[in-house]
Lab assay of single mutants.
Amino acid sequence: MDVFMKGLSKAKEGVVAAAEKTKQGVAEAAGKTKEGVLYVGSKTKEGVVHGVATVAEKTKEQVTNVGGAVVTGVTAVAQKTVEGAGSIAAATGFVKKDQLGKNEEGAPQEGILEDMPVDPDNEAYEMPSEEGYQDYEPEA
């Protein structure tokens, strides 16, 4: 019985440690998101679009440190934060509304985080759909 109880105690310690790591990862992701939003706020009209992409990228980098179902929630929060940063930029006159959601080359930025393969159960990952990809044929 002692062996059984000791095993359960060790398992509990492992769960607590994993929860603490997840909590730490979420806190880091939130900190990076805040950094990115402050970065966007300090940019001029020309830099705002690039700044919004930076927020998304920093958040995406930190999301990889967070495991399990938390990833889905962090990704949703990050996307809403990026959308909010863009709205703030438009409201303050840093950028025109028609410039939001495009990178410096004018290509749409939507789907940055949505296409990231995420499995809350950590069982399997699927690649994003290939609808947006084109076949590449090298020139002879």
Rank of each mutant, 00 (worst) to 15 (best):
residue 77 V to Y: 06
residue 79 Q to K: 13
residue 94 F to N: 15
residue 64 T to K: 08
residue 88 I to A: 03
residue 119 D to Q: 10
residue 91 A to K: 08
residue 122 N to Y: 11
residue 19 A to P: 00
residue 23 K to T: 05
residue 7 G to N: 05
residue 30 A to G: 02
residue 78 A to Q: 06
residue 45 K to N: 05
residue 55 V to K: 01
residue 40 V to T: 01
residue 34 K to S: 01
residue 131 E to G: 08
residue 116 M to Q: 03
residue 85 A to W: 11
residue 63 V to K: 01
residue 31 G to N: 08
residue 38 L to F: 10
residue 39 Y to N: 14
residue 83 E to A: 03
residue 121 D to L: 03
residue 6 K to M: 14
residue 60 K to M: 02
residue 108 P to S: 10
residue 33 T to S: 09
residue 12 K to P: 00
residue 103 N to Q: 14
residue 7 G to E: 06
residue 14 G to S: 15
residue 70 V to D: 04
residue 32 K to R: 13
residue 66 V to S: 05
residue 49 V to F: 13
residue 52 V to R: 02
residue 31 G to I: 12
residue 134 Q to N: 12
residue 129 S to P: 09
residue 43 K to A: 13
residue 63 V to A: 09
residue 12 K to N: 01
residue 53 A to S: 15
residue 73 G to F: 15
residue 107 A to S: 07
residue 25 G to N: 02
residue 50 H to S: 13
residue 131 E to W: 15
residue 20 E to K: 02
residue 98 D to K: 08
residue 108 P to Y: 05
residue 123 E to A: 03
residue 49 V to E: 06
residue 74 V to L: 08
residue 22 T to Q: 00
residue 67 G to M: 12
residue 36 G to W: 03
residue 22 T to L: 04
residue 62 Q to W: 03
residue 123 E to G: 02
residue 24 Q to A: 08
residue 74 V to F: 05
residue 85 A to E: 02
residue 5 M to Y: 01
residue 85 A to G: 13
residue 97 K to A: 15
residue 27 A to V: 04
residue 1 M to S: 01
residue 81 T to Y: 07
residue 89 A to E: 08
residue 92 T to M: 14
residue 50 H to M: 13
residue 55 V to C: 05
residue 50 H to K: 09
residue 38 L to Q: 08
residue 110 E to R: 05
residue 102 K to H: 15
residue 36 G to C: 09
residue 99 Q to V: 11
residue 104 E to A: 06
residue 57 E to S: 03
residue 122 N to Q: 05
residue 97 K to N: 08
residue 52 V to C: 09
residue 127 M to L: 15
residue 34 K to R: 12
residue 80 K to R: 09
residue 103 N to H: 08
residue 96 K to R: 14
residue 4 F to M: 02
residue 66 V to K: 04
residue 34 K to I: 08
residue 46 E to G: 04
residue 96 K to F: 13
residue 65 N to F: 13
residue 48 V to L: 12
residue 109 Q to Y: 09
residue 115 D to E: 10
residue 109 Q to L: 03
residue 134 Q to E: 01
residue 59 T to N: 02
residue 116 M to H: 11
residue 80 K to F: 14
residue 132 G to C: 14
residue 139 E to V: 13
residue 131 E to M: 01
residue 93 G to L: 02
residue 16 V to R: 02
residue 13 E to D: 01
residue 32 K to P: 00
residue 109 Q to T: 13
residue 139 E to R: 14
residue 45 K to C: 14
residue 43 K to E: 01
residue 52 V to Q: 01
residue 75 T to K: 08
residue 62 Q to N: 10
residue 26 V to G: 01
residue 120 P to T: 07
residue 69 A to I: 11
residue 42 S to P: 02
residue 105 E to W: 01
residue 96 K to N: 15
residue 44 T to V: 03
residue 22 T to W: 11
residue 140 A to L: 08
residue 42 S to G: 08
residue 104 E to I: 07
residue 91 A to G: 11
residue 38 L to C: 03
residue 68 G to M: 01
residue 135 D to A: 11
residue 60 K to Q: 13
residue 76 A to S: 04
residue 53 A to Y: 14
residue 31 G to L: 14
residue 57 E to M: 13
residue 18 A to N: 00
residue 123 E to M: 11
residue 17 A to W: 11
residue 47 G to T: 10
residue 17 A to K: 05
residue 25 G to W: 12
residue 46 E to T: 01
residue 2 D to P: 01
residue 16 V to G: 08
residue 107 A to N: 05
residue 57 E to A: 07
residue 4 F to S: 00
residue 10 K to P: 00
residue 9 S to N: 10
residue 112 I to P: 07
residue 104 E to K: 10
residue 73 G to S: 12
residue 106 G to Y: 14
residue 84 G to C: 09
residue 101 G to A: 05
residue 34 K to Q: 01
residue 12 K to L: 06
residue 107 A to Y: 14
residue 89 A to F: 14
residue 4 F to Y: 11
residue 89 A to L: 04
residue 23 K to H: 13
residue 81 T to N: 05
residue 118 V to P: 07
residue 56 A to Q: 04
residue 114 E to G: 12
residue 46 E to C: 04
residue 63 V to N: 02
residue 62 Q to Y: 06
residue 30 A to V: 15
residue 69 A to Q: 04
residue 35 E to R: 08
residue 4 F to T: 00
residue 84 G to H: 10
residue 26 V to A: 04
residue 97 K to Q: 02
residue 140 A to M: 09
residue 97 K to I: 14
residue 14 G to T: 14
residue 123 E to H: 08
residue 92 T to H: 03
residue 90 A to S: 15
residue 43 K to Y: 14
residue 59 T to Y: 02
residue 117 P to Y: 03
residue 126 E to H: 14
residue 11 A to E: 00
residue 21 K to Q: 05
residue 103 N to V: 14
residue 127 M to G: 03
residue 73 G to I: 09
residue 112 I to R: 12
residue 36 G to M: 07
residue 5 M to W: 15
residue 28 E to T: 10
residue 40 V to K: 01
residue 43 K to I: 15
residue 24 Q to S: 10
residue 60 K to F: 15
residue 90 A to C: 01
residue 33 T to P: 01
residue 36 G to S: 13
residue 23 K to W: 11
residue 111 G to N: 15
residue 25 G to T: 14
residue 47 G to Q: 13
residue 133 Y to P: 14
residue 27 A to H: 04
residue 25 G to L: 10
residue 137 E to R: 03
residue 122 N to G: 02
residue 112 I to L: 06
residue 63 V to L: 15
residue 86 G to S: 12
residue 113 L to W: 14
residue 125 Y to F: 11
residue 55 V to P: 01
residue 71 V to D: 10
residue 54 T to G: 05
residue 139 E to M: 11
residue 26 V to Q: 00
residue 66 V to F: 12
residue 1 M to D: 00
residue 66 V to W: 14
residue 49 V to K: 11
residue 65 N to H: 04
residue 36 G to Y: 09
residue 115 D to L: 02
residue 54 T to A: 07
residue 72 T to P: 11
residue 59 T to L: 06
residue 66 V to E: 01
residue 19 A to W: 09
residue 69 A to S: 13
residue 58 K to I: 13
residue 45 K to E: 01
residue 102 K to C: 06
residue 7 G to F: 14
residue 42 S to T: 09
residue 112 I to D: 09
residue 52 V to F: 04
residue 34 K to A: 14
residue 63 V to M: 08
residue 138 P to S: 06
residue 52 V to H: 01
residue 26 V to W: 11
residue 24 Q to I: 07
residue 74 V to C: 06
residue 63 V to Q: 01
residue 83 E to F: 11
residue 40 V to R: 02
residue 136 Y to H: 09
residue 90 A to M: 06
residue 44 T to N: 02
residue 133 Y to A: 03
residue 9 S to F: 10
residue 94 F to I: 08
residue 127 M to V: 11
residue 17 A to V: 08
residue 38 L to N: 07
residue 4 F to E: 00
residue 74 V to A: 08
residue 125 Y to S: 14
residue 3 V to M: 13
residue 129 S to I: 08
residue 33 T to G: 08
residue 23 K to L: 09
residue 12 K to I: 02
residue 39 Y to F: 11
residue 123 E to K: 14
residue 56 A to F: 05
residue 93 G to T: 09
residue 35 E to S: 09
residue 15 V to C: 07
residue 70 V to A: 05
residue 138 P to I: 09
residue 37 V to Y: 05
residue 14 G to Y: 09
residue 27 A to F: 11
residue 74 V to G: 06
residue 8 L to A: 01
residue 45 K to T: 14
residue 3 V to R: 15
residue 62 Q to M: 04
